[in-house]
């Protein structure tokens, strides 16, 4: 009985689409509505729930060695969290590699707390009903750089090398779709569907993009780190899976973090 009614409903929706949905006006009003939605999300960012959990994890004695992370050196000396994220990635003598925040956290969880590498990286991204400790730590540490100007150095040769390799990876086209990062993030004012895309080759967009991750994703109900952003971009690029803390991941982070230099860090943020 309901079947004959369906086309009527469809026709009405169609008419509504025609009334409100044509020309530049609708594009402007769509963009405006999206902006209003984003503004409404700003107060009460659930990312804070991850920050307080991460702060607690940082201070509590954990792991087989039952020690806290308060001796962990994130680049500004043991235990210094304030402003550390705004200077990462950087070269560390003790690991003899360029580390980003996550690979450094893994290093501290292994060397200080006595976890195995596998234990430390068992769950790095949260899923339904299973939050990731790593994302909580990342939320806490990054929150301690809020308002701090991005200042990623290219002083050590390894840092320069990581930057160059990250740049190459940014333009590296591959997979069945021939996609590179640059495919979607190489020009101004582009969108996928209605989602605005930052042009990561321009200073302004690169700064805004990098300084607003990690972010609470309302659509996922999860706090997402910058490394998750890269991981999921490569998934959509139809590439194989980006390995957590790999040189590739750190190099690309180095390229994008360095390009954000000079901008005030503004995360954990909240996004759609």
């Amino acid at each position: 009985m309901t079947r004959p009614h369906k086309p009527v409903v469809a026709a009405l929706l169609f008419a509504a689409g025609l009334l409100f949905g044509t020309g530049a006006h609708s594009q402007d009003s769509t963009a405006k509505a999206l902006q209003e939605y984003r503004d409404a999300l700003q107060d009460g960012n659930p990312a804070e729930l991850w920050e307080i959990k991460g702060e607690d994890m940082w201070q509590q004695p954990r792991g087989p060695n039952k020690v806290s992370m308060e001796k962990c050196d994130l680049g500004l000396g043991p235990g210094v969290v304030k402003g550390a994220y705004a200077r990462l990635p950087k070269y560390f003598k003790d690991t003899d590699r360029v580390d980003d925040l996550e690979s450094r956290l893994v290093h501290c969880m292994v060397s200080l707390q006595g976890y195995t590498r596998a234990e430390a990286t068992r769950r790095v991204f949260g899923g339904p009903g299973a939050a990731a400790d790593m994302e909580a730590l990342v939320a806490y540490v990054s929150s301690q750089s809020k308002g701090v100007k991005m200042n990623v150095a290219l002083a050590h040769p390894r840092e320069r090398e990581a930057y160059q390799m990250g740049q190459k990876l940014f333009y590296y086209r591959g997979g069945p779709h021939d996609f590179a990062c640059a495919t979607c993030h190489g020009e101004d004012n582009k969108r996928i569907r209605l989602q605005d895309l930052p042009n990561l080759t321009s200073k302004k967009d690169a700064q805004r993009a990098y300084t607003t991750w990690p972010a609470y994703r309302v659509s996922q109900g999860e706090l997402r780190s910058f490394q998750w952003r890269l991981y999921d971009c490569f998934r959509q690029q139809r590439f194989p899976e980006l390995l957590f803390g790999s040189d590739a991941s750190v190099a690309l982070t180095m390229f994008l973090a360095r390009n954000a230099n000079g901008a005030a860090f503004a995360a954990p943020a909240i996004k759609r």
Partner: peptide
């Protein structure tokens, strides 16, 4: 650097091997 990826589902590592065009356009 490409060792930073692992095969997953239908996406094998061969996807990182560029053909002539992909190489040129990178």
């Amino acid at each position: 650097l490409m060792r930073g990826f692992k095969p997953s589902g239908q996406a094998g590592l061969s996807r990182l091997v560029q053909d002539e065009v992909q190489q040129f356009c990178s």
